[in-house]
């Protein structure tokens, strides 16, 4: 079980209000990702749920019971920290055993769970090493192992992959998703990286300055962002925003069009501009187009073989049914 409900939760540090009243329900077994720019209060929100910070007002319920004033240890939640927070003077085995030792689990059971976790996380050969003798990815797995053996009702992850290199990050992303499929336990995952959010989440919660901007599945957010902020945050490369006369033609203050929804041509199209930097990824190329009169830069995704060079003229045509319209408040409308 792991159903977590936040009811008008607020948090202030002194005079600074970090989380304005916030309501959120996380269902049992869901993989929820909190995503938002740095400093928007993601970690604070996670720490409130964990019980490492006291709420200023409001209520947190776990499985229907009021947990607002429960100490962290009593909430049956396990957390994986950004710094991993492994105990440096204990071996991997002792690190993983620590929560069970504190809970008074008997030795035989401890051994069984450690071995199961080590096997699942490929740590069997490293059980007698210290955290300092492990690579970043292995440390990450130890931290996850320490969380698993507690058999918590929900896992909390605070930017667990941000200290890993790119290749390892992709791997661990898969491993964590895999783990979620196996355990079917609620997971709350905090990240500033929208790619992680899109690839892992059942449900994404987009935060800005402590506010929830939108809650929904990855594709819902991609297809129907509620406002300009979500539209710009979800999707990579970023959506292009165009203001002025072109937007007015659509009856909007601003229109947004994703790089993958613009076709580029060497000969004709609706708009024209000059090719600036071209980023070649092999399969795709991202063209940064200048001097189009629409916006300073328009990013366009084209085929990897596209052969225009710096300074060439390029013609762009948007897919009309994929154009997003925003009003003066930045809200999207149909």
């Amino acid at each position: 079980m792991g159903r977590i409900t936040l009811d008008k939760v607020t948090k202030s540090f002194g005079d600074v209000n970090v989380i304005p009243p916030l309501d959120l329900t996380i269902n049992d077994g869901e993989f929820v990702v909190f995503v938002g720019p740095s400093g928007c209060g993601k970690s604070t929100l996670l720490r409130l749920i964990a019980g490492l910070e006291d709420v200023t007002s409001g209520q947190i319920r776990i499985d229907g019971e009021d947990a607002t004033n429960l100490p962290p240890a009593k909430r049956k939640l396990a957390m994986v920290f950004q710094s991993y927070a492994l105990y440096p003077h204990m071996s991997v085995r002792k690190n993983i055993a620590f929560p069970m030792k504190m809970a008074g689990v008997d030795e035989a059971e401890q051994k069984k769970r450690i071995e199961a976790a080590a096997k699942a996380l490929n740590l069997t050969d490293y059980l007698d090493r210290r955290p300092g003798q492990l690579s970043g990815g292995q440390r990450q797995r130890v931290a996850i192992g320490r969380a698993i053996v507690r058999e918590p009702s929900a896992f909390l992850f605070d930017e667990p992959l941000s200290n890993l290199d790119a290749a390892l990050r992709v791997n661990m992303r898969l491993e964590i998703s895999e783990l979620h499929n196996q355990l079917e336990t609620t997971m709350i995952y905090v990240t500033h990286d929208q790619v992680e959010a899109m690839t892992m989440a059942d449900k994404i919660v987009v935060l800005r300055a402590g506010h929830i901007e939108q809650v929904g599945s990855p594709l819902e957010l991609y297809r129907a962002p509620r406002n300009k902020f979500v539209a710009g945050f979800i999707g990579s490369p970023k959506m292009n925003f165009i203001e002025g006369a072109v937007a007015q033609q659509h009856g909007a203050e601003t229109i947004g069009i994703r790089p993958e929804h613009i076709t580029a041509s060497e000969t004709d199209g609706m708009w024209s501009g000059k090719v600036g930097v071209a980023e070649h990824l092999g399969s795709d190329t991202f063209l940064h187009v200048h001097d189009s009169g629409l916006a300073e830069t328009i990013t366009v995704r084209v085929n990897g073989e596209f052969s225009l060079r710096h300074g060439d003229t390029v013609y762009l045509t948007p897919e009309m049914d994929k154009v997003h319209k925003f009003d003066a408040q930045g809200l999207r409308f149909e």
């Binding site: 100490p71 962290p72 240890a73 957390m79 320490r146």
Partner: peptide, 14 residues
């Protein structure tokens, strides 16, 4: 001392 270690231990029930 990394305060996250203490917090981790707190969550671990110490």
């Amino acid at each position: 001392l990394d305060s996250e270690q203490l917090e981790a231990a707190e969550m671990d029930g110490a």
